[in-house]
């Protein structure tokens, strides 16, 4: 991209890829991203975690939370979509408003061998009013559940889409992304005439 001051900057948007530890978040980001996923970290202050009294280091204490991300550039419409894989240490990213602020929506990856691992992410997005869908990442040795069984187990609203996917497969990851955007469109207010 050659920068020219007269150019209009692209519209930058983000989608979160959440779910429990080891469910395939980084794999999913890597499959969909046009760049090798990058990883970085953020310092979360103890104050923002609601933890007081950290002795000597006072309220300046921080802990680091690593996360990874990738991006997809849509040149035709001058949009850059960032995919943020939320950190496996979920109890910390929940404290991190900037990661979810302004996100268009989220994909919650689920592993049917440990469905309970994604409860926290589902609760988080429900509470924040961030639209999401659940994508069951089908591991080879996992018992094949029906989406309906997953919905019941997660007590998901009927409107929340549930899909099956293979996080390693680019076509599958892209299909999940498209489904999420379709879900967002269905939920978005009708165009004003």
């Amino acid at each position: 991209m050659v920068y020219n001051e007269s150019e209009v900057p692209p519209t930058q948007v983000k989608i979160l890829i959440a779910g429990g530890f080891g469910v395939g978040k980084t794999t999913f980001v890597g499959a969909a991203s046009e760049i090798e996923p990058l990883s970085t970290e953020e310092l979360i202050t103890a104050a923002s975690m609601g933890i007081d009294n950290l002795s000597r280091t006072g309220d300046k204490s921080t802990t680091t939370v690593a996360f990874d991300f990738g991006r997809i550039t849509i040149h035709r419409h001058d949009i850059v979509l960032y995919l943020f894989g939320t950190p496996g240490q979920e109890r910390f990213w929940f404290m991190w408003d900037e990661l979810s602020a302004g996100a268009l929506g989220a994909i919650v990856l689920a592993d049917t061998r440990r469905l309970q691992d994604c409860f926290a992410a589902v609760d988080f997005f429900e509470n924040r009013g961030i639209p999401f869908l659940v994508a069951v990442n089908e591991f080879d040795d996992a018992f094949p559940y029906e989406p309906g069984e997953v919905r019941a187990a997660l007590e998901l609203d009927a409107r929340v889409p549930i899909l099956l996917c293979d996080a390693r497969d680019t076509a599958s990851a892209m299909s999940v992304l498209r489904s999420l955007v379709q879900h967002l469109l269905a939920a978005a207010p009708a165009p004003s005439v």
């Binding site: 900057p9 519209t11 997809i72 849509i74 602020a101 302004g102 268009l104 469109l185």
Partner: peptide
Amino acid sequence: WASSSSSSHVTDRVLLEKLLDGLQR
């Protein structure tokens, strides 16, 4: 480089339609 910030577009249908079109291609 001031970007049209993401948060103001959360319910922007036009943006979502463009995004979907881009992902479909």
